[in-house]
């Protein structure tokens, strides 16, 4: 069963206050950022602080993601050298454009795991796709390694790359969003949507999140703690979805008991994808709402 990732909150890696409080802000995952939030002169400082945080703190079930620096910088390897031994859940490499990028990073991580005698393949990858080439290669990136558990679309850099203007309606990223969702689902992994950058526009946030949910994204990133609650609400299954999923599960169980091969519910054929979806919805529901609506 895939991990629930309705919200991923970005936290600057060089800010102790935020690092250590990040996990009580209600997001399913937190991203400790070593990349864009950190100025060049402070990369070392953030790296050391994040390493210490990983060593010392108890994150109570919140998933810890580290956004390392891009592979065209001199920082990414130092980032991995220091971070991998401390066992974060996920590494998020930015600006991924091809399967070769993923392979290079994975090889480096594997080397560290071998060198330090760590459990192999426990640390997963969520590549950040933020360029036209990345979008083009989304499927091959999704399949590049068994460690890849989700694709994350980053619209800010992407729209700059496209020469487009980022808007609330999101027409300019519609295709990219679609493409990333398709690539992710074709590879049987999750899709995470880009954060909404206007901190003060709650209405815009809700609109943007609903678009992402309706397009099939499993969750959305956030750059402000204020956005977490809204996004969680939108990506948490609705009462209708949960009820329907419950009935799907009941129908399956009944059919199995009765030895029937084909199940239908409300005039719809229930086959594997629908079953998977129903189980996933129920699991979100049980985990985040404690089984009560």
């Amino acid at each position: 069963m895939a991990r629930i990732r309705r919200t991923m909150l970005f936290v600057p890696g060089n800010n102790p206050g935020m690092l250590f409080n990040g996990c009580v802000l209600g997001a399913d995952s937190v991203i400790f950022d070593l990349e864009d939030a950190i100025s060049l002169g402070e990369k070392d400082s953030a790296r050391i602080l994040v390493r210490n945080a990983l060593e010392t703190l108890n994150y109570n079930g919140t998933e810890i993601i580290i956004r390392i620096n891009a592979i065209n910088t001199s920082f990414w390897q130092k980032d991995l050298d220091m971070i991998i031994p401390k066992n974060p859940n996920i590494i998020m490499p930015p600006k991924i454009e091809s399967k070769e990028d993923i392979i290079e990073i994975e090889n480096y991580i594997t080397k560290i795991e071998e060198r330090d005698n760590l459990v192999k393949n426990e640390i997963k990858l969520i590549p950040l796709i933020e360029s036209a080439l990345g979008v083009e290669n989304a499927f091959e990136i999704a399949k590049a390694s068994s460690r890849v558990v989700a694709l994350f679309l980053g619209a800010e850099d992407l729209t700059a790359n496209l020469g487009a203007k980022r808007t609330v309606e999101g027409k300019e990223i519609f295709y990219s969003r679609s493409r990333v969702v398709i690539a992710a689902k074709a590879a049987n992994i999750q899709a995470i949507d880009t954060p909404y950058t206007d901190i003060n526009d709650e209405e815009g946030l809700i609109k943007d999140s609903k678009i992402a949910k309706d397009m099939g994204f499993d969750g959305k990133a956030a750059i402000s703690p204020r956005h977490v609650e809204e996004i969680n609400k939108i990506f948490t299954p609705s009462y209708e979805e949960i009820e329907y999923s419950r009935r799907v599960i009941e129908a399956i169980e009944k059919a199995e008991k009765e030895g029937k091969g084909v199940i239908s519910l409300d005039g719809q054929m229930i086959d594997a994808p629908i079953v998977e979806r129903a189980k996933y919805v129920i699991s979100i529901f049980e985990n985040v709402k404690g089984g009560r609506y």
Binding site: F20, S45, E55, L57
Partner: peptide, 8 residues
């Protein structure tokens, strides 16, 4: 926190 002091 101690780990922050050590980091800095």
């Amino acid at each position: 926190l101690d780990c922050t002091l050590r980091a800095r």
